[in-house]
Simulated scan of single mutants.
Amino acid sequence: MEELNFKPCACTAKAEPEQISIAPELPISGKKLWLAMGAALICWYAIYSQLLGFSKFAAFDLMGLTPGSHLGEAIQFFIYDTPKVLMLLVLAVFGIGVIRSYVTVEWTRKVLAGRRESAGNVLAALLGVVTPFCSCSAVPLFIGFVAGGVPLGVTFSFLISAPMVNEVALIMLYGLMGWKVAALYFITGITIAVVAGWVIGRLKMEKHVESWVKLANAGNGGPASGMTVEGRIKFGLDSVRDIVGKVWLYVVMGIAAGAAIHGYVPQDMMASIMGREAWWAVPASVLLGIPMYTNAAGVIPIVDALLGKGAALGTVLAFMMSVIALSFPEMVILRKVLKPRLIAVFVGVVACGILIVGYIFNMII
Rank of each mutant, 00 (worst) to 15 (best):
V103Q: 08
Q50I: 03
G144H: 07
V286P: 03
K84S: 10
P24K: 02
T188E: 03
M331E: 10
L51R: 00
I255A: 00
L288T: 13
V111I: 12
G149P: 10
M253V: 15
I187W: 05
I28C: 06
K204I: 06
V105C: 09
P8T: 13
A13I: 02
G245T: 11
L123C: 10
P223Q: 10
V316D: 02
S239T: 14
V357D: 09
I273R: 03
G348Q: 03
G310R: 01
P24Q: 05
V345W: 06
V282Y: 04
Y185M: 00
L123F: 11
R116E: 15
Y45C: 12
V199T: 06
N5I: 09
G178R: 04
L355A: 05
W179Y: 14
L65N: 07
A259F: 04
L141R: 00
V146W: 08
V154S: 04
V90K: 00
L51P: 06
E18M: 10
A271Y: 09
A224E: 15
M63V: 10
L215K: 15
K180C: 01
L355N: 03
S137Y: 02
A46M: 14
L306S: 05
I243H: 02
T228F: 11
L88G: 07
M321D: 06
E106I: 08
K180R: 14
K336T: 11
I160D: 00
A297V: 11
G189D: 04
F361N: 07
I28E: 07
L173S: 06
I365F: 15
A318S: 12
I96G: 05
I200S: 02
M177S: 11
V168Y: 04
V350C: 10
V181E: 13
V154D: 02
V130I: 15
